[in-house]
Design a binder for these strands. Sequence first.
DNA 1: AACACAGGG
Length: 934
Amino acid sequence: MASSPQSPSVDDRSNESPSTDDEESNARRETDIHERDAFAKRLRKRDEEQTKKKFKPEPVSHDTERSKLSVDELRKKSRHVYLAARKDKKVEELKQELADEAYLFKDVKLTKREQHNIDLKKYTLNLALEHERAQQMENIDRYHMPTGTSDDTLKNDRYREDNRHPEAKSSGQNSDQRRWEDEVIHTALPHYGSLDKEAKNKQPKYDYILDEEIQFVQQLTIPGVNQILQQQKEKPKLHEHEDENKRKHRELQESRKTLPIYRFREDLINAIREHQVLIIEGETGSGKTTQLTQYLYEEGFCEADIEEGDEDEDDDDNEINLPGVKKKTKKKMMIGCTQPRRVAAMSVAARVAEEMNVKLGREVGYSIRFEDCSSDRTVIKYMTDGMLLREFLGEPDLASYSVLIVDEAHERTLHTDILFGLVKDIARFRPKLKLLISSATLDADKFSQFFDDAPIFRIPGRRFPVDIYYTKAPEADYIDAAVVTVLQIHVTQPLGDILVFLTGQEEIESANEMLLERTRRLGSKIKELIVLPIYSTLPSDMQIKIFEPAPPGARKVILATNIAETSLTIDGIVFVIDPGFCKQKTYNARNGMEALTITPISKASANQRAGRAGRVAPGKCFRLYTAWAYQHELDENAIPEIQRTNLGNVVLLLKSLGINDLVNFDYMDPPPMETLRLAFEQLYALGALNHKVELTKLGRRMAEFPLDPMLSKTILASETYKCSSEILTIVSMLSVNNSIFFRPKDKMLLADTARQAFFAPGGDHLTLLNVYNQWKDTNYSTQWCFENFIQFRSMNRARQVRDQLEALMERVEIEIQSNPADTVGIRKSICAGFFYHTTKFSKNGMYKTVRHQQTVLIHPNSCLFDQIPRYVIYFELVLTTKEYMRQVIEIENEWLRETAPHFYKTKKLDDDESVKKMPKVLGKIKAELERNYS
DNA sequence: AACACAGGG
C-alpha cells in the first residue's frame, strides 16, 4: 500500500472505481513521472506559502488572476452587486414582515400552519443574517474544493489509523464512532486544496468556466472500518475436484467468515444465552441481518423447549397424525426477524437460504403482505414488522417463536414501535423467549433503557472513510447550491458518481433542468455528465436507469428523494450532496388533516446520507449547511412515526389483541394525546367500540382488514347495499395513494384530458371504479395504461390489494355481489364508512366539516371541482397551498341518518347541534388521557 | 387551479 505522497503511481482510488478511464489515467501517470521533480518543487514552494497563509490568510489566489479578465470580472461584479442589493432588500422585507406579524398576532393563538410560516420566515432571516456575518469576517481562512486524490487521502494520519486491524481497536470501536459525532469544530483539520499537479493545473481553468462557487470546509471524517477483512475475501485458494455446487457453497461459507460479525460469534451467542433481551448495535455491512439468524439456528435455538409445553412429552413414537389432532412433538421453533421493508425481507431471506443451501420457503422463508413464502418446516423466518404485528392476532404469545429479532429498530416505524411494547410484554411471561433488538449506532442506549437496561452488544460495520465538508456560510437556495456543487465536483474531482438528496419530484425536476441547462452552456469544456432522477412514483423503466454504469469518462449524478437514504443502494457513489432537508408527513389530530412539510433532517439521517458515499471507495459528503447548523440545529433523531400519523388502525388492532388500556401502553415514545382521542372517537362513531370503550362484534370484523377503520367499515356496509364487488375495487384504488394518474411534465395537458375522460357523475370514488373496470376489461393491459396516462404499477398494486381483500371477505362472511348500476348504493356504503368526513357547503361559499367546522375546499383534481354539491364526503384532508379535500363524492343529507343514525340525530343537517354529542365515556377517556399526559 | 418524502398491512 502506498504510504507516502511521494508514490503517486499507486493510486488506491483507481483500483476501487473500475469505471475510471484507464487510458487517461495511464497517460496521466506517465506525465506524472516526467514532471514529478518539477511538481515536487512546486509542491514544496506551495506548501511553504500555505504555511504562511495559515496564520495570515488572504483571499484565494486566483482572484488576482481573474482581475485580468476585465469583461468577465465586470459582469461578475455587477451580478454580485445586484444580488447583494436584492438580498438586502429581501432581508429588510422579512424583518419588517416578522415585526408586523409579531405585533398583529401577539394576543392571537396561531394555528400550527401560521406558526410554521412564521418560524420559516424567522429561520430564513436567520440564515441570511448568518450569511452576512460570515462574509463580514474577513480574517477567516478560505478553502478550495478538496482535490480528492489519493495523495490527499494518504497524507492524513487518520487514514492509516483506520486501517489498523479491527481487533486491535474493537474495544474502542464505539467511542470512535461517537467521537466524530462530538468532534469540536476547532479540532478539524484545515484542508488546503490541491496538492495534485493535475488539479493544480486545472483549477484556474475552471475558474473561468464556473461563474459561481461555494466555499466548503472539511470538518471531520467518518472513519472507515474493517477494510482488511474485506480484502481477505479476495484471497484465492485452490480446491480441485469440486463440482460447481460444492464450490459455490464453500465460497459462500468462506465469505460468511469475512463478515465483521463473524469474529464476535462466540461472545454474541454467550451474551444471548445469558440475557433474555439484548440490544445489538451494528452498522450496515456488519452482516448481522443475515448471520445472526444462522448462528442462532446452528446453536440450537430452534429446538423446542420441552419444559415450556407439557403436552409434548408423551407419545413420542406415535407418528400417526390424526386429522384435527395437533402433533407438536418434533415441531421446531422459529427464529423470526422483522424488517421495515418488504424487499429487504425477501432479499435477505433469499440470501440466507442460499448460504444454508436450502430452498427458499422451506427451512428459510419470508412472510410479507400478499406473499407468505414459508412452510411447516420453516425455522428462520424474515418478515415485515407489520406482518409480525398481525401474527399477534392469531397467536397472541407468539408461541411458535423461540427468538425474535427486531431489525433496523432505529428507523422507528409505526409497526416497530408497537412491536416494542408487545414483545416486551410477552417476554415477561415467556422467560425462554429471546429478544434481540438490532439498531444502528447512536440510540442503542435509549433501546436499552426501554428494555429494562438490557445489555448492548456492539458490532462494527464495514465502510470506507467519508470526508465531511460543510459550507462556510448557510445557503439560502439549496437547489441552486446543490447544482453549483455538482458542477464544482464535476470539474475539480476525479471520476465517481454523485448522489444528491432532494425533497421531492418537483425539486428533482427543476434541479435536473438547471443541470442540463448549465452543462449545455459549458459544452465540451467539461466531461459528460449524466443526470438521472429517482423517486418512488417514477415509472420503473426510468428507475432502473440509475443502476446502469456511466460510460467511460462520464459521470453519473443521481437526483434522489429519501428513497436513496434507506430503501435502495446505488453502487459507485463517491460523492454525496446533502442539502439537509426532507419531506415529512405530519398529522394534525385536531382536525384529522395531513400535510407534507419540508423539514430539516436529523443528525442520524445526515450521517446515513453521508454513509452512502463510502460503500465502494473512500468518499466525500458535501453538506449544504454549516457545521454550526449541524451541531446546533439538527435534532439527534427524527420524530418517530407514531407521533405523526393517524392511529385508527393501530388502536383497533391493539383493542382486538385485548389491550384495553392504550393510554398506559408501554410506548417507547407515546403518541400525542389528541391522536389517541381522535382514534377512539372515530372508532366509537363507527360502532367498533361500545359505550364502555370495548370492542364490539363489528369492531372485531373490521380488525380483520389491513385497512383504515373507515375503509373496513365501508366494506362491511357494502353487504347491505349488495355492491361489495364495487366497494372492494374502490377501497383498493383508494389505498394506493393518489399515484394512479401519471402526469409527465411535458405532456401535462394530454394527461389531464386523459384523466378527465374517466370522470364519473357522483364523485371521484366512482371515477376510480371506472378506471379499474376499464383496465380490467382490457385484461389488465400495460399498453392501455400507457395510452391513458395511468400508472401500471399502481394499478397492479390495487389489483393485489383487491385480491387480498376479496380473500378476507370469507372470514367476515360477506358475499361478493356486483351491482355496478346502483351508484346510490355504492355511495351509501361509502357514506356508512365516511360519515365522519361529511362537509356541507356553507353561506360563505366554502365547505365546512360538520365535525370540526373546519373550512375546506374541493381539490382541483377532483371531478366535482367545478360543481357545488350541497353535501360531500371526502376520503382525506390535505394541507398543501390550501386545505383540500381529496377524493370526494356527493351525498344526500338523508343518507347520513340512514347509514349513521347513532351519529346524526336530526333530519336536516342545518346546524352543528344536529351532530350528536359524544357520550360521556369519551369525555372520561379525554380526562384520563390528559391526566396521564400531564 | 394545482404540487404526490419514504414505507407498511
